[in-house]
Design a protein around this nucleic acid. Structure first.
Lengths: 127, 127
DNA sequence: TCCTTCGCCTAGAGGTTCTATGTGAGAGGA
DNA sequence: TCCTCTCACATAGAACCTCTAGGCGAAGGA
């Protein structure tokens, strides 16, 4: 996974690709190419999924039993390997998403208002 | 850097430690021990900074000219190396913080409402 | 002296991502 | 048939960060 601009090559959020793949598969089975495109689109092209990251990640997820795969035919009539979420994968996704929220919140707390570009609300009463 | 519970050892947000160190030094010069404690405290103990991550990170930052160090005496009367933010370091922090916000936002968009534990608002008219 | 605490440091392993490259098959034109 | 483009999967090697586990030296109290 890389950013659009890639000012630095290596990724800042290593380890989140697996989570994003699992999240994408909640919408149904898909093959590698499609998964990558969906992640890029739903992130407004901020995240770019490289093949060299994607396929190792898919194999990782399958090894761990979080996705299952089967060969099929793509919408372009090509042979493609389709992946779908397993029950264990759904549980893993829940755990990872919770973990991500906690981490992102914590990092946000450390950063405070530094680096915000006006996208944070002033306060709004809090919860 | 690790989480408090460490369900998995390896870190989900690799590469953010440098940014958090720089952010901490905005408040003034500090030595390693203190930096780690400040990050842990300001994250409400969600983030834990291991020494094996901290010192390589500090050396990295110094090599790149983003912090400067000098020996001194700690509040406990021990010899300690104090770090402070350089001008370049401040610029780097701004860039990294912007990058982080963009990435975190993007990942949030991909996740959608999945994994939220009730901390997101229902909608509120949008912007 | 012994022990604890503070504070710095490093080696090695583990894991993820990137770049670069290779393979095979379908579609379309000549 | 031949050629080329695109789709789709796959791997090797390097680069990078973090963790575990350990070592070193000095201050302070018993």
């Amino acid at each position: 996974m890389a950013q659009g601009r890639k000012p630095d090559n290596r990724e800042m959020v290593q380890g989140t690709l697996d989570m994003l793949i699992l999240r994408t598969l909640v919408g149904g089975r898909a093959h590698g190419h499609t998964i990558a495109q969906l992640i890029e689109q739903s992130s407004d092209d901020v995240l770019q999924v490289e093949q060299g990251s994607l396929y190792p990640a898919l194999h990782r997820l399958e090894d761990r039993g979080w996705v299952a795969s089967s060969w099929g035919t793509s919408e372009n009539n090509r042979t493609a390997r389709f992946y779908e979420l397993t029950k264990a994968g759904r549980g893993q996704l829940t755990r990872e998403a919770d973990r991500w929220r906690a981490m992102a919140d914590a990092i946000g707390r450390v950063l405070g208002d530094f680096g915000t570009r006006g996208r944070r609300k002033p306060k709004e009463s809090e919860g």
